[in-house]
Nucleic acid binder design. Sequence first.
DNA 1: CTACACCCTGTAGTATACTACAAGGTCAAG
DNA 2: CTTGACCTTGTAGTATACTACAGGGTGTAG
Lengths: 132, 132
Amino acid sequence: MPLLTTGKAAEEAGVGRETLRFYEREGLIEKPIRGNSGYRQYPPETIARVRFIRRAKELGFTLNEIRDLLALSDPPNAECAQFRAHAKSKIEEIRSKIGKLRKVERALSSLVDTCERSGTPQKCPILDALED
Amino acid sequence: MPLLTTGKAAEEAGVGRETLRFYEREGLIEKPIRGNSGYRQYPPETIARVRFIRRAKELGFTLNEIRDLLALSDPPNAECAQFRAHAKSKIEEIRSKIGKLRKVERALSSLVDTCERSGTPQKCPILDALED
DNA sequence: CTACACCCTGTAGTATACTACAAGGTCAAG
DNA sequence: CTTGACCTTGTAGTATACTACAGGGTGTAG
């Protein structure tokens, strides 16, 4: 059973029914084919795409940024040079995000360390973690 | 000049004037002291705090999550054991975020690679990057 | 062939995080 | 001592991303 109705597809993708319609309106997923009743029939690729959207959102990407990200993997990819430039700037953005998260992680770890050694947490450089 | 008025403080922190008032209402920053005119006077610590909030938001944390993160560094930190548990779960969350971002980064890099070798980009596993 | 769960459309409402405005007070320069 | 940039409050509006109806059609189990 490769094709799913809205309810099943939403459950599989981990979002609400209305979210699928919303993403369709927003052009984030393809309009699914319809049965003769007019019911939407979602292919597994769309489910995978929605799952990706959900996770990317948790990583701090907006729907517009996710649209860009998805466009990078969607054929046809017009100009290769243009594509590379776009992809590379996205990669840079992601690396910077990773670097910043690592700083927050280190700050929290050092807080836990201090706390484990001294028995009480000290005031600590979480705020410094994300300075320029 | 350690104390700044709303306009200057907002500029320093990289947010709008109204955002400072908003964060104050939301309890994300302390109510600043007031001059005899009633003007707010922000200390540098508040500016640092707002900068942190701004960056953390870019990393996909909501204001409520940021409130939690900031609470971890604010004295008094009540129970050490409780504090450690809280901090450690935040660290885990951040590590998972980093792992996922790395997967997206790798997927994009492989796309760029393929494109550089073949001259045209192929369809590629960006979608697979964030699977469970 | 009647329930009842599910689907359709369109529209309206919500939560989050600002952002803009109106109506007025303050302060420093010329 | 006026002008203009800045500040105050409260309230209202916006963008993003859903979320919840209302009013109606569909499909299958008993």
